[in-house]
Amino acid sequence: MSFIIDVQDIVKTYGEKTVLDHIGFRIPAGETVAVVGPNGTGKTTLLEILMTLRKVDSGSVSILGKNANEQKAVDEIRSRIGVMLQEGGMYSYIKLKEALDLFAAFYSVGRDKIGQLVEYFELQPYLNTKYEKLSGGWKQRFLLAIAFLHDPDLVFLDEPTTGLDPKATQLVWEKIRGGVEKNKTILLSTHSMEEVDKFCDRVIVLSKGKIMANDSPAAIKDMLKVDYFSDAYFRLVEGDDRR
């Protein structure tokens, strides 16, 4: 089996604090994987390492078969990943059609592909709207469209539905599932255990820099004999049922 992400025994420290403590996991192609854990537990650091924004102190990280510790590989990895950041990362005063044009130039994407994307994400009515004027749900949908613009093999979504109402959340997930159907690998962080249970093939539960569980939500629930993934989560991060 080929793995899109292969993390072996990584350690990351900030000064005296160990944020990730000898963790490892593998993610096969086509899976939707959630990284969950309490605030300050190393989720963002882990995602940023996988996105090639941070380097590890020790251990190895392979993304799309490339060694993420090598600068040459980093440039190639970045051209093949899609990213949706929690902060947004979009110019407030740019119109949607301009942002699409700009990012299409970065990734050498043609007009046909932009047209398909606009249609799939139903962006047509807002193409002449500035990003800052969009509602929270449309902002997330647009950022998701940019993440999928260049047809990446691997997509990182940092809390894609935080702050959205149920309808907007459902729409964002519809589009994410559309990507999954095209055999994209999705790695996301979220605080919604309901979403993990409903949509994810695998979940990595982090606590205090260590992996407490790495399996399908159903398998974790079975193992802990609970009906809801949120119960399993609390037992893993607060209880003694550690692997």
């Binding site: 051209s79 950041l85 902060e87 990362g89």
Partner: peptide, 14 residues
């Protein structure tokens, strides 16, 4: 930097 624009740009081929 604060709004993540830098991070987003750096995660593209730019």
């Amino acid at each position: 930097k604060q709004s993540g624009i830098f991070k987003r740009l750096l995660l593209s081929p730019i």
